[in-house]
Amino acid sequence: MRTYLDFEKPIAELESRVAELRALTAEDEAVSLTDEISRLEAKTNDALQRTYANLGPWQKTQVARHPERPHAQDYIDALIEEFVPLAGDRHFAEDHAIVGGLGRFRDRPVMVIGHEKGSDTESRLKHNFGMARPEGYRKAIRLMELADRFSLPVISIVDTAGAYPGIGAEERGQSEAIARSIDCCLALEVPIVAAVVGEGGSGGAVAIATANSVIMLEHSIYTVASPEAAASILWHDSARARDAATNMKITAQDLMEFGIIDIIVPEPLGGAHRDTAITIAATGEALGEALEAFDGMAGKDIRRHRRRKFLEMGEKV
């Protein structure tokens, strides 16, 4: 059963009608409803086109958080060969909210890091819904430094509501861990390319998204604070998340206009979750092209390119 978002109600009704008719045809060979089915399918398609061409920022937020949307591990499984997962920050623990490891991407050895949200209740709990603690960022730092020493490019899959706000996380220096991770990204002499595939939430996202090239999926979001957090700060009412989302310019299209990101990867009609294979392949294509741009560039220049990219942000607004 597909999960439908609140604004997808008409689509849900059409699709369930189609499913019913299909079931009828399957039961009784004599009944031919092909015409009716294709008429309804065309209508569904139409509704999807109309809805998804005009998604508002809050609707995009919902799509970006869709439970069936592909997550970091799905990208790794589909795009990375010979993947060797690497765990632990060597100080405190293994944080499953950030996954990472070595692997081959289009024959090229790379280091992959990414937030993993999980796909069912059990795995969501294990991955803490993609909200990392300091040890997660410290693991990311360790893997990035490893990549740097062995001249491997870094691919970063960004998908988090934000860093975890808990006592333990604060106790162990959440802010310092994020700051160091940004610091590490900026010091790398290998290229780092990041893809925001769902939610790019706040410092927890930028910690591994300070990259030479930043890709965003068409319906993903990237924000200074989650719409709920921003609403609670601005209106002291987290229920006004929709307003915050609308005002804060958080969509891939907005960020492209501000010069914050480099590439938007189109999603299949109805969002990434409707065809994960196509979504992942298209993202892989974009990541591959982004990496190729740095082939043959000296390490110092790769670092300089990244520094300059961030320093120049804001000049065009």
């Binding site: 900026l186 010091a187 924000t223 200074v224 601005l234 310019k249 907005d254």
Partner: peptide, 20 residues
């Protein structure tokens, strides 16, 4: 600063460049 959205978030890496 929430009112500056993503431009505000980007000050995190930007200032870190200067720290480096």
């Amino acid at each position: 600063r929430m009112q500056e959205g993503i431009m505000s978030l980007m000050q995190m890496p930007r200032t870190t460049v200067a720290v480096q």
